[in-house]
Write a protein that binds this DNA or RNA. Structure first.
Lengths: 219, 219
DNA sequence: TAAAATCTGTTGAATTTTCAACAAAATGGA
DNA sequence: TCCATTTTGTTGAAAATTCAACAGATTTTA
């Protein structure tokens, strides 16, 4: 477990918790680590909303599939970030999404009940943990706001431009990489892939952006 | 303040807190109550992310306007519900939305810093309050999931049907009222109002739904 | 390394949405 | 109650998206 020390320090769930306390707490919480191959479903829709996940290495995508087979990507979760934390906390019995390993992953799993039900041993850290969890979920809410800001736009072009501005702001640079390939970006923006390719080409021709694969530059 | 007792008991933020403790706590938190006329902006985009609001009477809408003037309705907040709680908790300095009184409203305002920074007087309730806040924000995340589930659909008809199913499930009945008029529903579904009217008419003709103003029945 | 599989950009046709305009119905205020 | 305003449903034209199909480029894997 110690070997994940560096990455766990970056996890917002453990902000302000000292390393010694952290590992004692993880032990108390019954945290486990599992590895997943690329494209493997870490959680599937309908699974019990029991565990929260922390990405130790690799990255995962949160996916929603509707009954017509349309894939919708809700978000991309990078290393040190938490996922599936809102479902158990909100009292859902099952999770409404699928979580897919985007590449080979190591994932820490913690039973959410161990966080929500205060135990007698380590209450000092426990309240801090719940506070951190609250902040983490609040940040996720903001990320959903941003996603809605993107997909509420009516045209493919506006969705794309809004998304690229957001990514540029996040990277604090006009030059940045996105975590999606074309089909995935289309599934995030909720548009047709071929129409998306057309818009990217147009924006390039108009001298508004530069692009090569996953790398974009705003001009 | 006592006259709001009945409604405050329903507020998820105060779950499990006794009435006496509640009013002592509200006093400690410096909670105030303000009235707003219909269509008045309780918060405007760019305001400091300082206060959380609780709807004591009336209802409010969370609105996002883009630079093209498209109005997007994020959610409708009914009485006893909390709003604007995620922004301060996530560490935003300003709020990215506008909150409009949908009808004459009484709103309780609480400085979020008073919740986030533990004071020495009432720590016992304070941790409970933060726990409740965490749950409340988690539920809001789920509500955003549902909104994304709706607007990720590609056609007006699918968006409408998905929304109506959600409302039916929420009301636990095939017969229910929605909190929006036609233009507002269009702004929530992110579609054109006239196109929405057409789809509602079609679904009625096809015998799939019944509808009169804000009342819908799934057949 | 070569073959297989996946990813990306392009095109044209079909479908859908948006937009503007209008009239009927419903609502609110004097 | 009556008039003014707002809301709603309908229509046709313009614009945009989706869909299917394909070829070139890239990546994977055997």
């Amino acid at each position: 477990m110690k070997k994940y020390s560096r990455i766990l320090k970056k996890c917002p769930l453990f902000d302000g918790i000292e390393e010694d306390d952290l590992f004692r707490m993880l032990n108390c919480l019954g945290a486990t680590v599992k590895s997943f191959d690329k494209k493997y479903a870490i959680f599937a829709e309908g699974d019990p909303a029991k565990y929260i996940g922390i990405v130790l290495s690799g990255s995962v995508q949160i996916i929603q599939n509707d009954y017509y087979g349309n894939r919708s990507i809700l978000s991309s979760i990078e290393s040190a970030q938490v996922f599936a934390e809102a479902f158990a906390c909100a009292g859902l019995s099952t999770i409404p999404v699928t979580v897919i390993a985007n590449e080979p992953c190591e994932i820490m799993l913690i039973d959410c009940n161990h966080i929500l039900q205060v135990c007698s041993n380590n209450c000092k850290f426990h309240n801090k943990l719940i506070f951190n969890l609250m902040k983490d979920i609040a940040v996720k809410t903001i990320i959903f706001h941003q996603k809605i800001d993107v997909i509420s736009k009516r045209s493919t072009r506006e969705k794309l431009v809004t998304y690229l501005f957001q990514q540029s702001k996040k990277a604090q640079s006009d030059s940045f990489d996105i975590p999606f390939n074309r089909q995935e970006l289309a599934d995030y923006l909720e548009v047709d892939r071929s129409g998306l390719s057309v818009e990217i080409s147009k924006l390039k021709k108009e001298g508004i952006i530069n692009n090569q694969k996953r790398h974009f530059v705003l001009l």
